[in-house]
């Protein structure tokens, strides 16, 4: 039987991909960021997940304005890194897990989550940067990936409550997959940042850390934070943090925190990540 063994929440700032690709990860600017991920890279080497369900958002790479799926699941065999205007990142292609992905897609639809199915797409920094942060620079990514793309760009984006509930449904779907698989779920994006308008550059260390506290908590209060609070407190792009709630919802009521890291700044953004496992 497949099981979700752990969850990771992490920023996916594109500049981190640039730092990895250009070997800048030990310099004064990036050093403290990558040091925070060192524990997690070692942990991932030991955990050896078979599959990661990777919750992220597309940044006008695979999807243009013509079609805006709220929740979309990648059921394809393989995904190539997208060209985001600077040429595609020189990272391995991402291998899918169509059997598990289609099982999750079917289960979710029967569980009242009307998913969009994607068979072909390129994946942008939202998906490849977390892989680089967790796995470094391997010849091939050490696990298969089920991409789960969330609209967090065009409003209304899904509520935190709905994201949490989707995570719960994903956990049920994974548990009913007959093959013995070690599955992790990652929620990516955030933390506080605003990339537009005169208020650009807003960061909120205090709020971000309270959000991390709530993710560790034994209750589900975090799912009820309204959009307006993310927008006011964490900037217009801080809303990406609702994607972390899909991860958290999939882990059950109680979790154990294994690692947590926070750093300001990376480009326009506050960087954070947290590693959680389900707890009885």
């Amino acid at each position: 039987m497949a099981r979700i063994t752990a969850g990771v929440g992490s920023s996916h700032v594109p500049l981190l991909g640039v730092a990895v690709d250009q070997g800048k990860w030990q310099d004064d600017y990036f050093g403290p960021i990558f040091a925070g991920y060192e524990w997690t890279r070692e942990w991932e080497r030991q955990q050896k997940p078979d599959v990661v369900i990777l919750v992220y958002n597309d940044h006008a790479s695979a999807f243009d304005a013509s079609i805006i799926p709220t929740f979309a699941i990648g059921c394809g065999e393989k995904y190539k890194p997208a060209d985001e205007g600077w040429g595609p990142r020189q990272v391995p292609d991402v291998e899918g897990h169509p059997d598990l992905a289609w099982h999750i897609a079917q289960s979710l639809i029967l569980d009242d989550f009307d998913m969009t199915i994607i068979n072909e797409m390129d994946v942008d920094h939202g998906l490849t940067v977390p892989l680089s942060m967790m796995f470094g620079q391997p010849e091939a990514w050490p696990c298969k990936v089920v991409p789960l793309a969330v609209n967090v760009v065009t409003y209304p984006v899904p509520s935190g409550n709905r994201c949490w509930a989707l995570g719960e449904a994903i956990a049920r779907a994974v548990e009913s997959f007959p093959e013995d698989l070690n599955v992790q779920i990652w929620g990516t994006g955030g933390m506080s940042h605003q990339l537009q308008g005169p208020r650009a550059g807003l960061l909120n260390r205090e709020w971000d850390n309270r959000f991390l506290d709530l993710l560790e908590a034994d209750d589900d209060a975090v799912r009820f934070i309204p959009h307006i609070e993310y927008l006011r407190e964490t900037g217009s792009e801080g809303i990406e943090m609702v994607m972390w709630l899909i991860m958290r919802g999939a882990l059950g009521q109680r979790v154990k925190r294994l690692h947590r890291h926070y750093h300001i700044p990376c480009s326009n953004t506050a960087i954070g990540h947290i590693v959680l496992e389900p707890s009885a």
Binding site: S192, Q194, R199, A200, G201, L202, L203, N204, R205, W207, R232, E233, T234, I264, P265, S267, N268, A270
Partner: peptide
């Protein structure tokens, strides 16, 4: 940004 970003 280096100084901690814009305050809310």
């Amino acid at each position: 940004m280096l100084d901690g970003g814009r305050s809310p």
